[in-house]
């Protein structure tokens, strides 16, 4: 396999992994596949776009760039703001919709509701921003040679590094803090978690906040390396599900590995099947996983 495929695949794989964290955590905890999760990435990207331009207006003058990157510190501030706001959006969607439906039992009703929420959220952005692509920056991305036959834009490298750091941080939080332990415990056995004094409602809120924030980061990174479109998150949804299932539901390292594998498989498939079929690669991987090992790479439990 050539090195270019690996570096391109890893960059998009890192974004898939970031988004899949939320999918795998909410799936593990609330036992439903959230079809609206991709929209958190889209909303994250557009919220950052608005925040960055607001910053530009408030401070007067356009944002410069950091070194040879295509973006400046306005976008970094906007990224942080967008992660917070998107986390709150995820929380809000849970409290107006999913939390109420959970009280009635059937998990599949939640899936239908999330499918409806996904279309509504996406169309709302289409209403506000039209279907035309948008960009954070008009700068030309500088590429560097990392190894013979391997070139990457500086943007890609920064995105890859930050994404991996965010994923690693999430993993450390889950394994090494009391809150993380409580989250893992609740995901495994909510009743016993209650008996152990864990406020399950708190854990659910934390999970939405974390999933929403990570999805927002994935959306912003996708906007930096590709472009912003109202359908960007929806198109990411199938890779997100495939990565979460491939990695094993509930497992953050699994989501990370699953994302990387899907990203590289997509990049590798382009020269063979053509770029137009890229979106079907995740589906093929998903089918193979479901047929061979439905518990995924890191999944302990049959689901």
């Amino acid at each position: 396999m050539n090195g270019q495929i690996v570096i391109d695949g890893m960059t998009s794989g890192a974004m898939i992994g970031l988004g899949a964290i939320g999918v795998t955590l909410t799936y593990g905890l609330l036992r439903f596949a959230n079809f609206a999760h991709g929209e958190f990435a889209t909303w994250g990207a557009y919220i950052a776009l608005v925040l960055a331009s607001l910053l530009g207006t408030l401070l007067g003058g356009a944002d410069g760039t950091i070194g040879d990157l295509t973006f400046g510190w306005h976008l970094l501030v906007a990224l942080a703001g967008s992660m917070v706001l998107t986390a709150l959006l995820a929380l809000a969607l849970d409290s107006v919709l999913f939390r109420r439906l959970r009280r009635h039992g059937s998990g599949m009703v939640l899936v239908i509701a999330s499918f409806g929420a996904s279309l509504a959220l996406r169309s709302l952005l289409e209403f506000g921003f039209t279907g035309q692509p948008q960009y954070y920056s008009r700068e030309i991305a500088m590429t560097v040679a990392i190894a013979p036959g391997m070139r990457a834009t500086l943007d890609q490298l920064v995105v890859l590094g930050v994404a991996v750091a965010l994923m690693a941080g999430t993993h450390l939080m889950l394994t090494h803090t009391a809150l993380g332990r409580a989250m893992r415990a609740t995901s495994e056995n909510p009743d016993l978690a209650r008996l152990a004094g864990i406020d399950v409602a708190d854990v659910v809120r934390t999970t939405w906040l974390l999933g929403g924030a990570m999805a927002a980061a994935a959306g912003v990174f996708l906007g930096v390396t590709v472009q912003l479109r109202p359908t960007m998150g929806f198109e990411l949804l199938l890779p997100l599900f495939a990565a979460a299932i491939l990695g094993g539901i509930g497992s953050v390292p699994g989501a990370m590995a699953g994302g990387m594998i899907i990203g590289i498989a997509e990049a590798a498939a382009v020269p063979i099947a053509g770029a137009q079929y890229r979106a079907a690669v995740a589906f093929v991987v998903l089918l193979v996983v479901l047929l061979i090992k439905p518990t995924g790479l890191f999944g302990a439990r049959e689901r």
């Binding site: 596949a33 079809f35 599949m108 949804l237 199938l238 299932i245 998903l286 089918l287 479901l290």
Partner: peptide
């Protein structure tokens, strides 16, 4: 998983 597969 049926939902996700039919979607895909």
């Amino acid at each position: 998983y049926l939902a996700i597969t039919t979607f895909g």
